[in-house]
Nucleic acid binder design. Structure first.
Lengths: 149, 149
DNA sequence: ATATATGCAAAGACTTTGCTATCGA
DNA sequence: TCGATAGCAAAGTCTTTGCATATAT
């Protein structure tokens, strides 16, 4: 996975390291939404000496650079997403699964929210953080109980 | 603030204590979205011996009972909201302000999402957690920088 | 009376950071 | 070369929990 040269962040030159590129590759190859610790476990298979602090620092930097997204699904742990296009998530409150909601021109009930909410509140809306929390089809079938009880 | 008698949670009788009722009263009286620590500071003025652990335990219990809501605006700290009707928040990423988005019959761009997303994903959607992140009018005026930089 | 809740302090979970050595451009 | 990054371990922040005491019903 290559990165454009000479990126700067807060006036510092960003350097490509094996740790950073591996973390980016891993996230781009997944369609899941791992926690920092899960990224660490995966990357450690390729770079056994990597430390969790490096993982956190790189996840933070990559998301500041806009190469990945840091997402929040209502749990204490942040999750990371290799998809950077605007999209939304459904979260199962029984098994914890997080799935993307695919949107396209025929199906984008979110886009119009920007304007409506800006007008309503006077905020300049930059991002919608939308989690739809419910029960995934598998958990419905199995009658699983909510996680939190 | 009174609580109905003989509530049970997980087969245990819920008891009303001064700590619990004070926390509930405080939250119901605020239109802000305080952190647990902010609730603690406010409640301590009335009950100086209360401990932070009690505040956390009661905030958790009151939200399990549906008397308050625990909300997550994308920051590491949970926030608490005395309004339990379905509503949404705008979050300023410069000053951290969290405001309610008032909805009514003429303005509820969210309600239709339930059905659309259920149909799209196969999830039984129970709740929409929507934070609109942007810049509040004051921060636009003052040219404030984002919090995270 | 007794099960539930409190206060306190310790522990837990997750994340950040200081420091020295190493590495990339 | 030399400034940016890594590894390590310690510290930080927020939240939960074990235990003895107090309290609501």
């Amino acid at each position: 996975m290559e990165m454009p040269d000479q990126i700067r962040l807060q006036n510092k030159k960003i350097r490509m390291t094996s740790q950073r590129s591996t973390i980016l590759e891993v996230l781009k190859s997944l369609r899941t939404h791992p926690t920092a610790d899960q990224v660490y476990e995966i990357v450690k298979k390729r770079l056994p000496k990597i430390s969790i602090g490096t993982v956190y620092r790189n996840l933070d930097m990559l998301s500041r650079l806009g190469l990945i997204k840091k997402i929040n699904v209502g749990t204490p742990q942040m999750r990371f997403d290799g998809r950077t296009e605007e999209h939304y998530h459904v979260v199962c409150n029984r098994c914890g699964k997080v799935e993307d909601v695919e949107i396209n021109d025929d199906f984008d009930p979110f886009r119009k929210l920007h304007k409506a909410i800006s007008h309503r509140t006077g905020f300049e809306i930059k991002a919608l953080e939308i989690n739809m929390v419910g029960i995934c089809p598998d958990c419905v079938k199995r009658g699983n109980l909510p996680l939190e009880d």
